[in-house]
Computed example of a mutant assay.
Amino acid sequence: MIDRLRVFLALSAIIALALGLLPLQMLALTFDWPMRRWLPGVWHRFACRALGLRIRVIGALDTRRPLMLAATHASWKDILILGALADVAFIAKSEVREWPVFGHLARLQHSIFIARNDKRGTGTQVNEIAARMADGEIVVLFPEGTTSDGNRVLPVKSSLFGAATAALPSAPDGVVRVQPVTIAYTGVYGLPMGRYHRPLAGWPGEVALVPHLLGVLKAGALDVEVSFGRPIDFREGDSRKALAATVEADLRRMLNASLRGRHRRA
């Protein structure tokens, strides 16, 4: 009974705040007000608390611009967590635009949608990302191209770093910073996350959203470790494949450190 009441109250609070902020964000998007960047973060931070996501940060977000975050991706929770930590713009595949709930939220966040199979539109999409970065926005890329199970890093796709190349002409010092970021789900109620609770970390596409969301809410308190790695300087003439390889190696090292509890033992 208590669990059901807590789930009901958490969902009600999240929905109520979303409905309250919705008109403001729609106006901000229509008139391009500065608040369109930071207002979603208000909801993200509240949603993380309501869901019981306890976030620990290792390292720091780079302060230089243009900046692209290359983050691991295991769940819809990743978006809430990163959005709670910084005013960011997400790069999402075009199919997300039509998803129930998440598609609408992504549009309200002014996410950048890319159609990976639309070669004719690739240039326009890349230029939009570059323009947003040139305007000082922090762009989040999930370079694995899909969600993992939260226990590993999938191969990083070098083609997704085309936006970093396109942003170079607008970079004041001719450098785009690409910062690796890992999101590790490490514990439940302060205890290490064992095999029984690992399904709460990842959200594979074949699992329905509602049961997974209810599982997170019933868990009560999930510990999340977000690690900001060393920014990688990307310059004119640099190889995207070399950048992807470096990012992938850093993500694997950082995720393994978090899942094995190295930071917590330090």
Rank of each mutant, 00 (worst) to 15 (best):
K93P: 08
P180Y: 09
A131E: 10
L53Y: 10
A60P: 03
V226K: 15
G83R: 07
V247Y: 03
G190L: 04
N117I: 01
A167Y: 15
D135W: 07
S258R: 04
L17G: 04
E98I: 01
E236G: 04
S148Q: 09
L21M: 15
L217W: 14
R195F: 12
H110G: 10
R264N: 08
P155D: 06
G123P: 05
L29V: 11
A221E: 15
G205Y: 00
N117R: 14
V226D: 14
M1V: 12
F90K: 00
S258L: 01
A18D: 10
D233N: 10
Q109F: 09
S227N: 13
A86E: 02
R45F: 03
A18G: 10
A47K: 06
V207Y: 01
S111F: 00
V57E: 15
V188Q: 08
L69F: 00
G20C: 15
G52V: 05
V139H: 03
A13R: 13
I15T: 14
L108V: 09
S12V: 05
G261C: 03
K119L: 12
V57C: 14
R36I: 14
V153H: 04
L217F: 08
V139Y: 01
Y196Q: 15
T124D: 11
I79P: 02
V139C: 07
F90M: 01
V156G: 07
F90C: 01
S12C: 08
Q25A: 13
W76L: 00
P40E: 05
K93Q: 08
L160F: 03
R97A: 13
S94Q: 13
V207G: 02
K218F: 04
I81A: 07
A134R: 02
L11T: 10
L9N: 08
Q109N: 15
D62S: 12
G205L: 05
L214D: 04
K157W: 06
L69C: 00
P66W: 14
A13Q: 11
A208I: 01
T182E: 07
T30L: 15
V176E: 00
A115K: 14
D3C: 06
S258C: 11
A201C: 02
I14E: 12
G215I: 01
Q179R: 04
K241P: 08
P231W: 02
A244N: 07
L259T: 06
G187V: 05
P23F: 12
A166V: 13
F228A: 07
L19D: 07
E98R: 11
M193Y: 12
A71P: 04
V188M: 11
H197S: 09
F102C: 03
I232R: 02
Y185M: 01
L80N: 11
S75G: 03
Q125Y: 07
R260H: 07
P169K: 13
M1I: 08
I2G: 14
P100I: 13
G261R: 04
I129V: 11
R64I: 13
A184T: 05
R198F: 13
L243D: 02
E248Q: 10
L19Q: 10
L160M: 06
V42I: 15
D3K: 15
A115H: 14
L9M: 10
I112D: 03
G145D: 05
V247A: 03
G150M: 00
I129E: 01
A208P: 06
